[in-house]
C-alpha cells in the first residue's frame, strides 16, 4: 500500500500501542456525526412522540407541538401501547413471527455461506454463469413469483405424468414460508458473502491447503470464523426483512388468527382508511423492538481487529 508523502498533518500524531482504542476524531467528526444523526432522527422522533400522545391530540395538532410543554402530563399517554398490545392474538402472532423469522434467517445464511465459498475459492465448470445468474436474480420482483410458487405448493408440478415437484400441501406451513424466504434472501446473501469471503487474503487459504486441509475444513475452521462480521451483517438484514415482511407470510401462511404474523396482526389496527394514527405509531415501535435487539446484540461483531485476531489465531 503506497501512500504519497504529504506535508505533515497539522495535529501531532499521537503514538499509541497496539490494542488500544482506534484513535478518535476531532470536533469536526463529532459535529458531522451529530448533524447526520439529528437529521435521521427527526422522522423517527415524530413517530415516537406520536405514539405517546392521545388520539384526539394526534389528529388535531402537530407532533412537534408536544415538545413545547413536555411536562404537561395530560398530553402523554400509554393507552396506544396498551391498545396495540391488546390486539387479539398478539402473543400467538409474536410466536408465529419468531417461528418464521429465526429459521428463515439461519437457513439462507448457511446455504449461502457454502455457495459463496465455492464461488470464491473453488474451481468448477459453470462458476461464472451460476454466479451471474444469482446476481441477476436479485432483480426478480417476488410478487411475480408468488402465484407460481403457491401453485407448486398446492398442486405440485406434473410433467408427463410424473411429479417433478410433489404435491406436498405446503401451503399454510412454516416450512413453506421458510423455503420461500430462503429463496428470496439467497441472492443477496450469496452476493454479499461472496464479496466478503472472496476478499479474504488468499495467503491464508493457500497455506491451509499446503497444510493438507480440505475445502470443508478450511470453510468450517477458517472462513466461517473470519466471516463473522459479514455473516452478522447479513443476519441482521435478513432478520429485519423477514420480520417486517407481510406479503410472503400472508400468502404462504395465511391471515387467520392462528396463522398470522405480527406485522399482519398489527396492520389490522391501522384500518383500511389509515385513521388510527395513534395505534399505528405505537404498533410500529412494538414491532421494531425485537429487530433492534438483534441489531444491538450482533453489533459487537463489527469491531475492528476481530478479523486480524482470527487470522493470527
Amino acid at each position: 500500500m503506497s501512500v504519497t508523502t504529504a506535508p505533515p498533518a497539522a495535529e501531532p500524531i499521537p503514538v499509541r500501542g497496539k490494542g488500544l482504542e482506534p484513535r478518535t476524531g476531532g470536533w469536526f467528526v463529532r459535529i458531522a456525526v451529530l448533524v447526520i444523526v439529528v437529521i435521521w432522527m427527526i422522522p423517527t422522533a415524530g413517530v415516537l412522540i406520536t405514539s405517546f400522545r392521545p388520539e384526539a391530540l394526534v389528529d388535531t395538532t402537530g407532533w412537534w407541538t408536544a415538545l413545547a410543554h413536555p411536562f404537561e402530563t395530560s398530553q402523554w399517554t400509554l393507552e396506544n401501547y396498551r391498545l396495540a398490545l391488546d390486539t387479539g392474538g398478539f402473543a400467538s402472532a409474536f410466536l408465529n413471527s419468531l417461528a418464521v423469522a429465526i429459521p428463515a434467517t439461519v437457513i439462507p445464511i448457511a446455504i449461502a455461506a457454502f455457495a459463496a465459498y465455492a464461488f470464491s475459492w473453488m474451481e468448477f465448470r459453470g462458476r461464472y454463469l451460476m454466479f451471474i445468474a444469482v446476481v441477476g436474480l436479485l432483480v426478480v420482483p417476488l410478487q411475480m413469483a408468488l402465484i407460481p410458487i403457491l401453485r407448486l405448493y398446492n398442486e405440485g408440478a406434473i410433467v408427463a405424468n410424473y411429479y417433478v415437484f410433489p404435491d406436498l400441501d405446503l401451503n399454510g406451513t412454516f416450512l413453506g414460508v421458510w423455503l420461500a424466504h430462503t429463496a428470496f434472501g439467497l441472492p443477496l446473501a450469496i452476493y454479499l458473502l461472496r464479496n466478503y469471503i472472496g476478499s479474504l487474503p488468499s495467503s491464508i487459504i493457500e497455506s491451509a491447503r499446503i497444510d493438507g486441509a480440505d475445502h470443508f475444513t478450511i470453510f468450517w475452521r477458517l472462513i466461517i470464523p473470519l466471516s463473522v462480521p459479514a455473516l452478522a451483517a447479513f443476519a441482521i438484514f435478513q432478520f429485519l426483512w423477514v420480520w417486517n415482511d407481510l406479503l410472503v407470510a400472508y400468502v404462504f401462511l395465511g391471515g387467520s388468527r392462528e396463522t398470522r404474523v405480527l406485522t399482519l396482526a398489527l396492520q389490522g389496527l391501522v384500518g383500511r382508511e389509515g385513521e388510527n394514527w395513534h395505534l399505528l405509531t405505537a404498533a410500529a415501535f412494538i414491532s421494531m423492538a425485537l429487530p433492534l435487539l438483534v441489531f444491538f446484540s450482533l453489533q459487537k461483531y463489527f469491531v475492528r481487529g476481530l478479523t486480524a485476531g482470527a487470522v493470527k489465531g
Binding site: 402465484i147 401453485r151 398442486e155 400472508y250
Partner: peptide, 21 residues
C-alpha cells in the same frame, strides 16, 4: 367460518383466486 379482513385485499384476491386457495 373464518372471516379474513384483509388490508391487501386486491393482491390477495388475485393471488388466491389464481392459485386456487
Amino acid at each position: 367460518v373464518e372471516i379474513e379482513a384483509s388490508e391487501q385485499f386486491e393482491e390477495q384476491f388475485q393471488i388466491r383466486a389464481d392459485s386456487g386457495t
